[in-house]
Design a protein around this nucleic acid. Structure first.
Lengths: 224, 224
DNA sequence: GATATTGTCTTGACACTGTCAAAATGCGTA
DNA sequence: TACGCATTTTGACAGTGTCAAGACAATATC
């Protein structure tokens, strides 16, 4: 049924405790953990109603707090979105390292196919996060938090070192420059993901073969 | 200085005649060609101030016409954006066929490198159009015009047939499926473009080698 | 326990946005 | 001249992000 290995499923479930409906501490003036509640509800809105449907006012009102309460935790809407993106990168890194550790040692061709599948699955199933993580809004130089930049650089660094390890194990020709290879292949994954997410590649039956072809084209040389 | 062949430069200059400053027909009530003026000014705003800075009101007021005048030509903001995207695809197709016809016959490896360069150049220099052409907003099923869909399908069809011709000339192995190859390589170009546009790949000196590596990785087999 | 300080949230306000409905204006034609 | 039509305007409504002041609660200090 599903295109994806089961291992990669269900990163969707929220990781928060019972936390903080608007009446949790029964009528207390202060909200239990407003910051977390804001992020959670924002993610929920984006996932279920689309990013466009997220407004600071509706968000606050949904939680049961007044219009501008959020501004005590986030300087502006952008800052909220950055926080979500950061959380996205954290989940993304978790997924990557799971894929990495679940593969056989030494890494095989399957490791790389799993990576492709994992990436595209994350992008297309956790769109709430992926859109923000790689959306342009957040990357205009000074709007993005330092911690966000760091978390994202980690992602890419990890990937480059994966590539190096594939190279050391003879899965990728060691003639190619690891950095360039990483940039180009990452671009491919990002491109596939975006074209699917944005509804340009619509035939969902084609997704799997596209992914397989991508893996094959990049790592063709490994099959003799 | 520039990364790009001169042939590909200067598609930026507007293709409209002297047309229609707000006082062109000296005080006439009707605007000469409001529809065109709207599109032009919208493109200008997006290019110079960013898509976010485009509002229907400011747009109309800039042109010297009142807030809602635009709604006589465009059902809503979305429709305006679709019109721009469509124009973008038209320019894009022109660029593609220029690249195609400028190459040697029969097509060589250089043809393909030119295609990569042309694509990424278009995307990064005519961002006003590219963002709309491949932005998600426009592709949610019923917001996109039929003519837009057609113009865009043309682009892709042309590309697939380029790939086929490269295949016939032995530039690409004829073992690979032309459609899949097109989808994946298009994804790569789109991915590279987006990562540059969105400011994630920031080192502009790296762009050229990235493009070259992309071309090389996809069409590796042609060099013996 | 009373008081001051700080962190948290609310109210009011402003300048914007997209878009609808109805009215006004100009132009070509009968 | 008057009619009809395409074009543009005015008025209005609901919604947005965000700032500045104030109101309230919890905590620290005396």
């Amino acid at each position: 049924m599903s295109r994806w290995p089961d291992r990669l499923r269900d990163m969707t479930t929220s990781s928060t405790r019972n936390a903080s409906s608007s009446s949790s501490r029964s009528g207390s003036y202060h909200h239990g953990d407003l910051r977390k509640a804001l992020v959670n509800e924002a993610v929920r809105i984006i996932r279920e109603e689309g990013e466009k449907a997220l407004s600071m006012r509706k968000l606050a009102l949904n939680i049961g707090v007044s219009r501008t309460a959020s501004y005590h935790y986030f300087a502006d809407k952008q800052a909220l979105l950055c926080a979500i993106a950061e959380e996205g990168f954290r989940r993304f890194n978790v997924m990557l390292s799971e894929v990495h550790h679940a593969g056989q040692r030494p890494p095989s061709a399957k490791s790389m196919r799993d990576f492709v599948a994992g990436y595209v699955q994350f992008a297309t199933e956790q769109t709430e996060y992926y859109d923000l993580m790689f959306g342009g809004h957040i990357w205009e130089s000074r709007t993005s938090t330092d911690s966000l930049r760091e978390e994202s650089h980690n992602s890419f660094r990890n990937y480059v070192s994966s590539v190096r390890s594939w190279q050391e194990n003879g899965l990728i020709s060691d003639k190619v420059d690891a950095l360039r290879f990483s940039q180009v292949s990452w671009s491919t994954l990002h491109g596939i993901s975006r074209l699917i997410i944005d509804g340009i590649y619509v035939d969902s039956a084609a997704i799997e073969p596209i992914c397989e072809n991508a893996a094959e084209m990049f790592w063709r040389e490994l099959e003799p």
